[in-house]
């Protein structure tokens, strides 16, 4: 299955990128491509010249994927503005998320692992403008992100990896069931 994995932060040091890179290596039976969003400008409905190229490229990549994973950072109990900006672009002229299965994961420096940002993100994905099909059931929340990875960028804790395996398997089943392609 072709999957676009969106890093939900424009920070160069985001642990959410690490998680997605780990997932793309770990789940090598699926075709996971990690997509950065730091080239996407702040959404503005009066942006000169229509949708900027990084938005068009990302939209196309999502269109051509069977499913999407978003790993969201949490700032002040909500999603990062950089991720929200991407979702606004992709619910404006282009709507690549429409009926696309989406898995939400998150890493944060605190023990909660971004639980509140996940709730907000789910609400946004369910809004009529975005109209994604957000997978629900288990929640993968990786806390204490600063110490969760080893030097190779792998998730250290075996129990955590096992739980991620379970979540991902459920999501793949869900995505297959909900996939038009």
């Amino acid at each position: 299955m072709k999957i676009t994995a969106i890093v939900g932060s424009n920070s160069k040091h985001s642990a959410n990128r690490k998680l997605l890179q780990f997932m793309s290596r770990h789940f090598d039976d699926q075709d996971i491509t990690v997509a950065d969003i730091d080239q996407v400008p702040m959404f503005n409905e009066n942006y000169p010249g229509g949708d900027p190229q990084p938005v068009i490229d990302l939209a196309q990549q999502i269109e051509q994927s069977n499913a999407v994973i978003i790993s969201c950072a949490e700032h002040a109990h909500t999603v990062a503005s950089s991720l929200k900006s991407v979702l606004e672009w992709l619910s404006y002229n282009l709507h690549p998320f429409a009926n696309k299965p989406v898995m939400i994961v998150s890493v944060s420096s605190f023990p909660q692992g971004g639980s509140r940002a996940q709730m907000t993100l789910r609400q946004i994905l369910n809004s009529p403008g975005v109209n994604a099909i957000a997978w629900q059931g288990d929640e993968f929340l990786l806390g204490n992100g600063d110490t969760a990875f080893n030097d190779h960028g792998d998730v250290k804790d075996e129990g955590t990896v096992k739980f991620l395996d379970k979540c991902f398997a459920e999501f793949i089943t869900f995505a297959e069931r909900n996939n038009a392609k």
Partner: peptide, 19 residues
């Protein structure tokens, strides 16, 4: 309200205020 949520530009402004 954009997509049932606060606009990205306002989140960004608030991020500047507290960060």
């Amino acid at each position: 309200e954009y997509d049932h949520a606060i606009p990205a530009a306002l989140i960004s402004a608030i991020e500047w205020l507290f960060y």
